[in-house]
Design a protein around this nucleic acid. Sequence first.
DNA 1: GATGAATGAGCGTTCATTCAT
DNA 2: GATGAATGAACGCTCATTCAT
Lengths: 211, 211, 211, 211
Amino acid sequence: MKELSKRESNKLQRRAAILSAAQELFSENGFKGTTVQEVSERAGLSKGTVYLYFKSKEELYLSACISGIAGFGERLVEAVSSARRLEDRIKAVYIAYIRYSLEEPAVFRVLRDTFLEKVRQNLSSKTIEETSSIIKGWLENESRLVQEGIDSGMLDADLDPYTFSIAAWRMATGLVELALLQDPIVVDPEDMQRVYEESIDLLIKGSRSAR
Amino acid sequence: MKELSKRESNKLQRRAAILSAAQELFSENGFKGTTVQEVSERAGLSKGTVYLYFKSKEELYLSACISGIAGFGERLVEAVSSARRLEDRIKAVYIAYIRYSLEEPAVFRVLRDTFLEKVRQNLSSKTIEETSSIIKGWLENESRLVQEGIDSGMLDADLDPYTFSIAAWRMATGLVELALLQDPIVVDPEDMQRVYEESIDLLIKGSRSAR
Amino acid sequence: MKELSKRESNKLQRRAAILSAAQELFSENGFKGTTVQEVSERAGLSKGTVYLYFKSKEELYLSACISGIAGFGERLVEAVSSARRLEDRIKAVYIAYIRYSLEEPAVFRVLRDTFLEKVRQNLSSKTIEETSSIIKGWLENESRLVQEGIDSGMLDADLDPYTFSIAAWRMATGLVELALLQDPIVVDPEDMQRVYEESIDLLIKGSRSAR
Amino acid sequence: MKELSKRESNKLQRRAAILSAAQELFSENGFKGTTVQEVSERAGLSKGTVYLYFKSKEELYLSACISGIAGFGERLVEAVSSARRLEDRIKAVYIAYIRYSLEEPAVFRVLRDTFLEKVRQNLSSKTIEETSSIIKGWLENESRLVQEGIDSGMLDADLDPYTFSIAAWRMATGLVELALLQDPIVVDPEDMQRVYEESIDLLIKGSRSAR
DNA sequence: GATGAATGAGCGTTCATTCAT
DNA sequence: GATGAATGAACGCTCATTCAT
């Protein structure tokens, strides 16, 4: 392992500071609603400096997305191996998605925004494709778990694994959105944990084979 | 009913034209992505005129949100009475929510936006309470249907009706978001109808009593 | 003739004010060296206003060029008919080109700048083609005069009319550049008029047929 | 001759490298179109280093101008002795001026720029005088050749030698400017060589004594 | 009441210049 | 002495808002 010189490590730190500031602000205010000035200020730097590290606002956004997604994916993989029974593993991924989203709301929001049209219009198709393909990968992983369940006879043979994954993913996303609202409207925050559990339980139960 | 003078009705018409244009544009391009100029043009008026009816771009946005919610509720009520079997009625509401959202994406988006924090920061608490209480009403209506199912022994006695409603609502919203994306990423558009049906079927099946 | 409303005439006046300011500044400082801000200030307007009249800085430059070129061309046409003998007419065009350039240095400079590479790099090819084709038109007019001279036996049959026009045009341009320098370097300003006359005389004399 | 220490010669080399890079870039892209970064890169140095050798971008530009002029004059002197007949020698200088300008466009442009007012505003009067006196020297050399022609009866006794030189110089400059344009507008590049020859031929022929 | 011309703050981005290392 | 990271002023351009007509 090569030691990094002070200057080099400094550069990495600055880059990380910018990325972190960007992640927070983009997720709070969206792409158009965030200015490079704001990002630079939150990172304790001047506006021009941001452009030493990122070629454009768009590239900064892309980098924020990708850096956020990486940690996310690891969590999901860990979750799969955290349980033995197949149903528990499926549930674990769902819960892990929600938990990580709540722990790192900035990442969740940036990630979700690539699925809102209005934000997409400001992104290059490269950015969209890149993030989309990562998410698609997650969905396919989840689908494989479901397929295993079908093969073992535990889940309904008529079930489409990908449909299950999509339904679970969108449900989780929708619930996290609700949970991230500051004012406890529509659902009591204390109830949310129960809602997470019960919602995926319903979906899994609904997927079981009649046997 | 007091008759409106010609002048007064003219004013109302103009206001409505602006609101309608705003609803379309805000939902297509978001708050920052929409210019007052565009709104005024689509409404067939000049830019200055918009400011005679709305104090600011922000107030115009709020008004567009509120005005979009009304028609939505009616559709859901109609859906309830469109089927005889209880399960079908529950499903019908879900499908109606999705269908109307797809028919009137502008309304859907404005409505959804009141549930995104970033947008909320621009909304008065009055606006938020107003829209929230309307949605809460929908959820309670749906819950009553589910409760009926429980009482009749068809649905699981352990099921929390409100949790079911929340799960279904968030799932529906998440799926519509996906469908409104212009590029068919993650899911093939032709498959979406099937996904709508199967997703709610899973939820309902998962809610049935063991019997 | 339709009367222009006050508002309309005001708009025309403003447009003219911007164009005039642009012509001066572009010719003093070049395309890159001139800011839209400066132009607006010299025209007594705000920066944003310039963009109500011209879509971009480039379009403003183009308009300044074209508006300058128009008057220029008329002078050349007048010059042709100001003399009877063919040689005098050829000479008259040359002298008219120089005189108008000295009277309206701003126009001369803007026009010349479209023939400097460094400026060209900032101009769209449309702009370049447009101005170039106008100048080409002048050169062809001049060539036709020369051709007449050849046909009448007065000018050398071996002479290429277009080459003559090019040579005269570049010589005139080069001499005006010299004359526009503020410090009387290289040539005494009082001598310039004589230089103009003698330079074209040489060229014409050199073009005569041996007979 | 004092030997330069290694350190001192190194400094000179660096200075020369910067100057050379600057000459190329300034003449390709103009003052505003060239960045200090680019110059430093082409010189193989860092941006900061440029500021160790030149106080500002402007001073760098001035230095580049001055340094470019030297080689030019030598070429003109060589040309004079390359032909025997007087007319041929006059023509040779003209053609040499054009040829060297085309071979070293960077130098040509820098040189020409000292004769454009807009650039002059950035030049110290010392610089202007220096370059002007060099050019004046060339013109006087050329004039002496012409005077010889007059004295020998070959050229018209009424001809002012200096006027001839000025006319030829400005014509040459104007033609080179045309040739350096990338897009072959107004004149076909293949024709240019012929135009060079014929233009000076016309001028010389026009200068001959009637005899 | 309606207009649209005018404004000017603010955007993303560039780049000459400075200065700690 | 050389570096290159950091700065901040300025650029072209947009657009919410105002106000004379």
